[in-house]
């Protein structure tokens, strides 16, 4: 089975610092990494391949330097990488992003499963995965925490809900977005990293994926950012000190109105 995993390169939040003077993000020296949620998607895609055979293609839309994310994905067990990159994609919101990725996926063709992380850590929208399945008009199961059974035609999976989980059967092809609970991603291997170094990454532009220019980038994005501002930073409040009994008393007094 051919498996496609959609990934995104994001700034590593462990590196992100706030400049206390200007209260803005300091992005100098912030490393770009694979979206943490996508690590679970990659691992699940590779496990699926190990189970049912086939190959895994990692796809990302982004600037040329996003090629590194694809090589990292190959080091983790993916077979091929596709970088969809073009100035025309700049300014894409989730609508245009999911359209672009779906066009690239159509070009790859002949897939059984598409796996996405549940959301990206920089945008946190969780909209692109379902957007792709809508554009492709294939079924989706979001928040998948376990793939119970899978064969060439169908899969039975568990979808995490607020109360527990749903068991859903779906025909293939299908798109899954996966949560952290689904697996523990492996570390890259040295052999994988060496393979990744020399692996060929396909680079596709807007023309290559036969996309409608009006649906791409800023032009194809219904939403616009009209204002950016920095919220009042949350300030540390008061420190309560004393014995455990004393601080508990004082705290109970302070929270009296909030607790019923």
């Amino acid at each position: 089975m051919n498996i496609i995993v959609c990934i995104k390169q994001v700034p590593n939040t462990t590196d992100v610092k706030i400049d206390p003077a200007t209260n803005t993000l300091v992005r100098d020296g912030v490393e770009s990494v694979i979206n943490p949620f996508d690590a679970y998607a990659i691992e699940e895609a590779v496990r699926l391949k190990e189970k049912v055979g086939g190959k895994v293609t990692a796809v990302t839309m982004g600037p040329p330097q996003a090629e590194k994310a694809l090589r990292d994905a190959i080091a983790l067990g993916c077979d091929e990488g596709v970088l969809v990159s073009d100035r025309k994609f700049a300014g894409s919101d989730t609508w245009a992003t999911s359209y672009t990725l779906s066009a690239a996926i159509e070009k790859i063709g002949d897939y059984g499963v598409i796996v996405c992380g549940k959301q990206a850590s920089d945008g946190d929208t969780a909209q692109v995965g379902p957007g792709i399945s809508a554009h492709l008009d294939i079924p989706q199961v979001t928040y998948v925490r376990k793939i119970r059974e899978i064969n060439e035609k169908t899969a039975v999976v568990e979808r995490m809900t607020e109360e527990g989980f749903d068991v859903v059967e779906t025909p293939l092809p299908c798109l899954f977005t996966v949560v952290k609970e689904i697996n523990t991603p492996r570390m890259p291997s040295i052999k994988g990293m060496m393979r990744a170094k020399s692996a060929k990454i396909s680079k596709w532009t807007a023309a290559d994926i036969d996309a409608d220019p009006a649906a791409l980038g800023l032009d194809g994005s219904p939403t616009r950012v009209v204002k950016i501002f920095t919220p009042e930073p949350r300030k540390g409040g008061e420190m309560i000190s004393g014995s455990a009994g004393d601080v508990a008393k004082e705290l109970a007094e302070l929270l009296k109105g909030e607790v019923v």
């Binding site: 492996r186 570390m187 890259p188 291997s189 040295i190 052999k191």
Partner: peptide, 10 residues
Amino acid sequence: VLAESDLFGI
């Protein structure tokens, strides 16, 4: 983990 990462064989 070390085994999967090929480190035992370097």
